[in-house]
């Protein structure tokens, strides 16, 4: 029962944060929000008895992908400033 509550909560939060990521005017906010959606999905994988997938999602999906986005953002910002 507690799993279902956590899963519904995570689902609602990830919808809100995903919509924020798409609608936000600031790109850095959008990138961080996408990383947070990935992190929430990693918790969901853990609840669904998939620890392997949770590990991969947490390290690659929300860690390294966000890092690469910030490399690109840094490159773009240099020219706008």
């Amino acid at each position: 029962m507690i799993y279902i509550l956590i899963a519904s909560f995570i689902g609602l939060l990830s919808f809100v944060i995903g919509a924020l990521a798409i609608q936000s005017k600031k790109l850095s906010v959008a990138v961080i929000a996408t990383g947070v959606v990935s992190l929430f999905s990693s918790i969901l994988f853990l609840l669904m008895a998939a620890p392997d997938v949770a590990m991969t999602e947490a390290s690659i999906g929300s860690g390294l992908t966000t890092l690469i986005y910030f490399y690109v953002l840094n490159k773009i910002k240099k020219h706008h400033a």
Binding site: P51, D52, A54, M55, T56, S59, I60, L64
Partner: peptide, 9 residues
């Protein structure tokens, strides 16, 4: 839990 992909990451 874990393996080549996770360890590589």
């Amino acid at each position: 839990p874990g393996g080549g992909f996770q360890g590589g990451a």
